[in-house]
Simulated scan of single mutants.
Amino acid sequence: METNQDGVREHLLVVDVDEYGHNEAEAKIQVRDLVRESDKGVAILSKVNVDIPKGVIMGVIGPSGSGKSTMLRALNRLWEPPKATVFLDGEDICDLDVLGLRRKVGMLFQLPALFEGTVAENIRYGPQLRGKKLSDNEVYKLLALADLDSSLINTPGNELSVGQAQRVALARTLANEPEVLLLDEPTSALDPISTQNIEDVLVKLKKNRGMTMVMVSHSIKQIQRIADMVALLVNGEIVEVLKPDQLSEAKHPMAQRFLQLSS
């Protein structure tokens, strides 16, 4: 927490250096006073402030309509944030090439949206836009990274289960070699086994590649399983940032109520 000149506490995500080996200076993403209003002038996000350190999984939870997905979409300009509100490695993302930004900051949505064609064609899509043709061996490695069997390489996307399709969508995102993964309810449409498969992949990506992830989820148990830090978003504001095992210590009344009803 930091206190500004008016005595108002601002919530910034700062990880304990001793425990995680990170500090504020190593923030991968910084969000400063991010705001958004609806077309009718209603506040969707109200001065969101948060630091997301390199190599951690940050969970974002809160009541429906609190602005979680809106905040997530600002981080790779799926909606255009105001200048000087979102920074990647210290650079204002509004000054970056948007396609290059989205390669660095990949996103996985609630429902997998595969392109027409085979699994291999889906995975090759992003690199192909840059003039790079992935070999079969490179595709196999990406399938393995997403915990998928290599035999699926020539399977049409429309013949996959939802769980398989979501992991192909993840492999397609990883083909762009992102530094950050944004995850918007990525397992809410999946069965428990498929959910565990996705969670296992995410934890491995963090452990083996040091990937930074921001995950919106309605499942507090899921966030407690895989996140390093949790941001509680209520009415467009981050009201608390806690470690997963400290959620019961939340002090904000609406955050307390949400957590009690969700447990």
Score class of each variant (00 low, 15 high):
K132C: 03
G59Q: 07
Q5A: 13
L233V: 13
V201Y: 14
P81Y: 07
G55L: 03
T3H: 09
A113Y: 11
L108S: 04
R9G: 01
I193A: 15
P53E: 09
D16M: 00
L242P: 02
Y125H: 14
A171N: 05
E37W: 08
P253C: 08
Q246A: 13
Q224D: 03
V180C: 09
R130F: 15
S151L: 01
D147W: 04
G126R: 05
R77N: 07
A120P: 03
G67Y: 10
K204W: 03
L160K: 12
D136T: 08
A146D: 06
L259M: 09
V8T: 13
G21A: 09
R102D: 09
Q128W: 11
Y140D: 11
L142K: 13
S263D: 09
E177A: 12
T118I: 03
A120F: 00
I93L: 05
N235W: 02
A231M: 00
G65R: 13
I223D: 11
D89H: 08
S194R: 10
V168Q: 09
N49I: 00
G41Y: 12
D16S: 13
K83M: 01
L190A: 11
E237S: 15
I226K: 05
P186R: 09
P192I: 09
V214L: 15
D18N: 10
F258E: 09
A231S: 12
K141R: 15
L96P: 02
A255W: 01
N23D: 15
S69Q: 01
S150G: 03
R130G: 14
T195H: 08
K206F: 04
I61H: 03
